[in-house]
Structures are given as C-alpha cells and as structure tokens.
C-alpha cells in the first residue's frame, strides 16, 4: 500500500498493525504452553507462565485500543485506514478473549491431572483438537499480517472441523460418564477444556472475517464458509 502524505500517520497505522502481531505472538506462545500443559504431567511453572502471558496480553489490548482511539480522534481515518482501525479494535478483542480461554485450558488441565480416572485415549482427542485450534490461530494471524483473504477463508472453513471434533468429544464423554459415574467430575473438567478450545476456534474465525472486511469492505460475519469463499473469489 502506498504511503500517506503524513509520515506520522503512516507510523501510527504501522504501530497498531505491528501491535496486533506482537499480541498475536504472545497468544501463540501462550497456546503452545497450554498444549504442553495438556500433554505433559502437571507443571506448575508452565501454568504460571500461561497466567503471566495472559496479563501481558491484557495490557497490550488496552494499549492498542488507546492507539486506535487516538487515530480516530486525530486523523478521522477513511476507507482502507478506517477499515483497518475498526478491524484492529475487533482483532485485539478476539486475541484477548483467546488469551482468557487458553488460561482456562491450562488451569483445567492441571485439575484433570489430579484425577487418574480418565484414560489417555480420550484425552488424546482433546489434545488433537487443541492442535487444530492452534493451527487456525496461526493461519488467522498470518492472514491478518499479509491481508490474505484466501487464507482467511480457509480458517473459516477449518472452524467447522473444530466444531465437529467438539461434538465427538462430547459424545465420548457422555458415554463415559454414563458407564461410570465416578468419572463425572473429571469429565466435566474435560468438557470445559473442550469448550474453551472450541471458543478459541471461534475467535480465530472472527479474526479471519475481519481480514475479509479490511480487504473487501464486506461484513461477512454470520456468512457460511461457502459464501465467504465466493466473496473472496469474486473480483
């Protein structure tokens, strides 16, 4: 994109964009730690690190939102600049929510470790689901960084897979709880983990939809993956 006549305006726009990317980097690191907490034996240091990441993410959300408010107040951005500023305020909100969900995953993982009633096999599905959400997050951030609408459309389609996996995990857990009521409390912890992962997928999808709005100027929230693909493919 060509530069503004005002170099200061360019610098301010670049600051919010790179702010989102460093916030995204933090969230990705936090996600990797939460998955490690799911896979490995309970590690108190890992949980602490996830919590610290979450606090840093919250601070960035506030800082970037303030920068956006300043740009709106001082520059009255229009067209592509306006679309970017609007999108950034939405994306930082989604990233902050992802940070909250990841923290839940890590804390609940520690809780599940306390119970030995659950087998590794069931847990494996949840870890795989988390891997899928991690992929979606990475692709959504990449789509934002490169304003790549095709990749954004992929993420929206991926969300359907996460939803399918979530339903499968729920069915498994229900049958398990019916067989042996002593597993109920640990299973409920897993339900919360799976739900948090499913929400991470939703937020990654929101970020991708925002990317489509920046590039195409179209609000594609609530559209189906096929509709979004068609919009992206259109001129």
């Amino acid at each position: 994109m060509s530069d503004h006549t005002s170099k200061q305006f360019d610098a301010e726009m670049e600051a919010i964009r790179s702010g989102v990317l460093s916030m995204g980097g933090l969230v990705e690191r936090q996600m990797a730690r939460a998955i490690a907490a799911l896979e490995e034996d309970e590690d108190a240091k890992l949980i602490d690190a996830v919590a610290a990441d979450e606090r840093a993410i919250n601070q960035l959300q506030i800082a970037i939102d303030q920068q956006c408010a300043q740009i709106i107040a001082r520059r009255q951005p229009t067209a592509v600049d306006l679309r970017i500023v609007l999108t950034v305020t939405k994306v930082v909100n989604d990233l902050e929510r992802i940070g909250d969900e990841i923290k839940k995953v890590a804390y609940k993982a520690a809780g599940v470790r306390g119970s030995d009633r659950l087998t590794r096999i069931r847990y494996y599905d949840v870890v795989r689901m988390a891997g899928g959400a991690q992929q979606m997050l990475r692709k959504a951030l990449d789509a934002f960084a490169r304003l790549d609408v095709n990749e954004a459309a992929d993420v929206v389609a991926d969300d359907d897979d996460i939803d399918v996996a979530f339903n499968a995990v729920m069915r498994q857990l229900i049958s398990f709880m019916m067989e042996d009521p002593r597993t109920i409390s640990a299973s409920l912890e897993v339900v919360f983990i799976a739900k948090a992962i499913e929400r991470i997928g939703d937020h990654a999808k929101n970020i991708s939809e925002s990317v489509v709005q920046v590039v195409k100027g179209k609000d594609v929230r609530h559209a189906t993956a096929e509709q979004i693909r068609a919009e992206v493919a259109g001129e």
Binding site: M1, S2, D3, H4, T5, S6, T78, A79, V80, D81
Partner: peptide
C-alpha cells in the same frame, strides 16, 4: 485513485 485521495495518500 479515490481511496488514495480520501485517505491522504495523494502524492
């Protein structure tokens, strides 16, 4: 061209 002008990218 319109986008460049209204966003102040007009050189």
């Amino acid at each position: 061209e319109t986008e460049d002008y209204i966003t102040g990218r007009f050189g």
